[in-house]
């Protein structure tokens, strides 16, 4: 396969010099997500895009990318401003190559950061937002250990913010191997994807608006996280 180069990225960087906050949604589209969960996930992502579009500043600063993992690890959407985003519809099938997906997300962020640097665009700490309802099927591969190492180093150097969200019967213990110790995975209450993505939207908005000297204050995830988590 010949790698595709996103055609529009240079143009949007030149016509919009605002600092960027890149966010990769790493979404589990394995077979077990089939039915209601994948439907809710689709709606939730659309909800995130709509919320970001409503905010003039966030729509200029946040860039979303979507990587799905199921029968393969797939770049479903390269970094795109919310106003130009048409989220693809996901189908659920296949195993759960979570490690590979995280490695891929990391690579996507590194290459986008290089594009920002070349264009002289500033950027905020990138986000990886991972949602799964299972456990990695590649936890014995080198992808998994590489993913853990990447997240750990990125978090320690404050070069990355990693969030893990567990859906239904996800194995949170395994997921927490990946999550930073200070920010363990959270369990989604029921299938409240829309509430969760609305939270993500307001969190992304708050990134550039925090008061100096104060800790980065994210809105409370109460309302979509499960209490028994």
């Amino acid at each position: 396969m010949i790698e595709q180069t996103p055609f529009h990225s240079k143009i949007t960087l030149a016509s919009n010099p605002e600092p960027r906050c890149p966010c990769v949604l790493v979404l589990d589209t394995s077979g077990s997500m089939g039915g209601e969960p994948i439907q809710q996930l689709n709606d939730g992502v659309q909800c995130l895009v709509d919320e970001l579009c409503k905010d003039g500043l966030a729509s200029k600063r946040v860039e979303l990318s979507i990587i799905t993992f199921g029968s393969s690890v797939n770049l479903a959407c390269d970094f795109t401003p919310p106003t130009a985003m048409h989220p693809p519809v996901f189908d659920a099938e296949g195993p759960t190559p979570m490690g590979e997906a995280v490695v891929r997300a990391h690579a996507a962020i590194e290459s986008r950061k290089e594009e920002y640097r070349q264009a002289g665009i500033q950027y905020y700490r990138p986000w990886i937002f991972l949602i799964t309802d299972g456990e990695p099927t590649d936890s014995n591969s080198e992808h998994w250990s590489k993913a853990i190492q990447m997240v750990r180093e990125g978090e320690a150097a404050k070069r990355l913010l990693f969030f893990g969200v567990a859906v239904n019967n996800a194995n949170q213990k395994t997921l927490d191997q990946l999550c930073p110790a200070t920010r363990p995975s959270v369990k989604l209450q029921g299938l409240h994807f829309s509430e969760m993505f609305r939270w993500l939207s307001s969190s992304l908005k708050s990134v550039s608006n925090s008061t100096p000297g104060a800790q980065l204050q994210l809105p409370s995830p109460h309302g979509w996280t499960s209490i028994d988590a």
Partner: peptide
């Protein structure tokens, strides 16, 4: 209150409270 991107060099990282 303040906004990091708009805070002068000498106040960066300080609490503005």
């Amino acid at each position: 209150v303040g906004t990091p991107l708009w805070t002068p060099p000498e106040l960066q990282g300080l609490s503005v409270h």
